[in-house]
Design a protein around this nucleic acid. Structure first.
Lengths: 336, 336
DNA sequence: GTGAAAGCGCTAACAC
DNA sequence: GTGTTAGCGCTTTCAC
């Protein structure tokens, strides 16, 4: 159907080798020949078939980004950061979403195994540490945003524990003493670490952790609302709530609003991620910023360098990128 | 580095043809042979190289979705719809974002030209109709969400003109007579059609279109705020505002809130798209729903059938999917 | 500076 | 039921 390099060679009256040289800007081709080739390409509307090229070169210059869900703008921001760095360096970025289904994730990972892509960045995964370690021996894989405990492969994240700690510290600075925690009941490292940071801060500054202030269910939107309901029914409800995601925070805020509570006054709410919605919401949402662009840039930079490296010389390091607590309208000083 | 089909054949003591047959579940292979092959595959950790397979089969079973920007949840919802249909039918969906840059878009399109993917769905494009028509002769391309005037290729959209008309009709039903329009100053079909729908409704129901009620700039968040500022400075400001995107509507709402206006009372605001943020916002945002999942499903269904069809028998139809006006808290009855 | 030819990993037509 | 082999479109070594 479409023209091949052979057609171009015939049209130009030269060999395929020469055409290939022109295509790849390699040296040792006369201006005259190049001219002929380019004319033939133009005439035939030729575009090189990368399946052939990639098969031969054993590389595709494509990196796949796999995310648990495509509907969180947070992930797409990271992808944007990845792309910004990778594109100018000759790598195409493609992404796919697993809908948090390990079956789909495995299927997507086939693109790595079957050499359709040179490397994969996982923005969350259902693989366990063992599997990841095994895979990363033979393939170029990196984790971003979401580490996996015990996995020894390239990982770029924020320090979730410290970030949660810092967030709680800010709430305490605002005068809060009764601080709720809203998280997900999963086994992810980030969930665990954010919880630990909360616990550490509470112990350090207030001397105790009240179990009834901890509500964990899932990342679903509804859970924020349920959490607030739960807190409200306590005999001594918290005055501030720290949520492990902005979406949960927004959900808490929504519920608080429905209950007629003044947000930032009667109740303070802090999220995590700093998705763009935080600034658009009324009230604007205080949060812990994950520097998406930096996360993306750093992970892809290191991954690309791994792709080019001999398999013994891979960087399997664990890197953290600085976070930042951003106070907006959803948090305020405690009323005495 | 990694095992090839030849290695498997050697290990199993069979020919590559037999291995290939096992790999493709084709008939005419004994249980015994299949067993041997599977053991060899297991032992070697073999995974077929799709570059070879695809090169040979002249198909990849991958569809690329190109979007102008990856940071609008709206697009990702459509991708989800596409994936939901395509995945079980043996197609992988990958996506990439052009950041609304035609240069990047062209580059991404190379994946189509160089046969890395079997087809492309454009959720917006900077290509003009002529180019699209030419390309669609040789490649499988479809437009979704955003049509291009004069382009004769598979297109699946909502009826933007009618949708805007319906939205305005609802505002009028709520008693509004002074209705502002906030749009983008681009040349896209959807912008044009939504504007036309606004004009038609205003003329039909109110007999006139007041030019000073039309504010067009861009889709940037700030523009909603600017629009409201502009409207407020009119001697006779609108009581309701129709925005061509939810993001603009949210921006208008934010500004109105900052100005101390009661949303849904002093000013009504209607968006377009029904992104998830609409339900999370305070107040919740009235909007025109685009049925993302249906859009995605329909376009990919028809595209897949085009991919399988002889080039003469392609469906280049223009299809619309029903929209729906959703009234929430950001719109209310006019106060007399 | 150019061409001939091998081969990347795979599938499928053909032979047995 | 299985094996042999040509060839998908390309790059690259080796001759010249």
């Amino acid at each position: 159907m479409s023209a091949t390099i052979k057609d171009v060679a015939n049209e130009a009256g030269l060999s395929v080798a020469t055409v290939s040289r022109v295509l790849n800007n390699s040296a040792n081709v006369s201006d005259e020949a190049a001219e002929k080739v380019n004319m033939a390409i133009e005439k035939l509307g030729y575009s090189p078939n990368f399946l052939g090229r990639n098969l031969r070169k054993r590389e595709t210059n494509v990196i796949l980004v796999l995310m648990p869900t495509s509907e969180h703008s947070f992930y797409m921001k990271i992808v944007a950061g990845i792309q910004k760095y990778a594109q100018p360096r000759g790598y195409d970025i493609i992404c796919a979403s697993s809908n948090s289904t390990s079956e789909i994730e495995v299927r997507q990972m086939n693109m790595l195994f079957n050499r359709t892509v040179d490397g994969v960045i996982l923005l969350g995964t259902s693989y366990d540490a063992d599997t990841l370690n095994k895979l990363s021996k033979n393939y170029n894989i990196a984790l971003c945003c979401e580490g996996v405990e015990g996995a020894e492969l390239l990982t770029v994240v924020v320090d979730d524990e410290q970030a949660a700690y810092d967030a709680i510290k800010e709430l305490i600075r605002l005068g809060h003493r009764k601080i709720g925690f809203v998280g997900a009941n999963d086994s992810s490292a980030s969930s665990k670490n954010r919880h630990s940071g909360y616990v550490r801060a509470m112990k350090e500054f207030l001397g105790e952790v009240r179990e009834e202030y901890i509500y964990t269910e899932s990342f679903e939107y509804e859970c924020g609302q349920k959490a607030l309901e739960y807190f409200r029914n306590l005999s001594d409800p918290p005055t501030a709530v720290f949520c492990v995601s902005d979406l949960l925070a927004i959900s808490v805020i929504h519920k608080a609003h429905d209950l007629g509570m003044k947000i930032g006054e009667e109740i303070s709410v802090m999220g995590f991620d700093n998705i763009s919605m935080c600034e658009m919401m009324l009230p604007t949402v205080s949060t812990v910023e994950q520097p998406c662009e930096k996360l993306g840039e750093m992970v892809v930079r290191k991954l690309i360098s791994n792709i080019g490296a001999p398999s013994g010389a891979k960087d399997n390091g664990y890197y953290t990128v600085p976070h930042r607590v951003i106070l907006r309208d959803s948090t305020g000083n405690i009323k005495k």
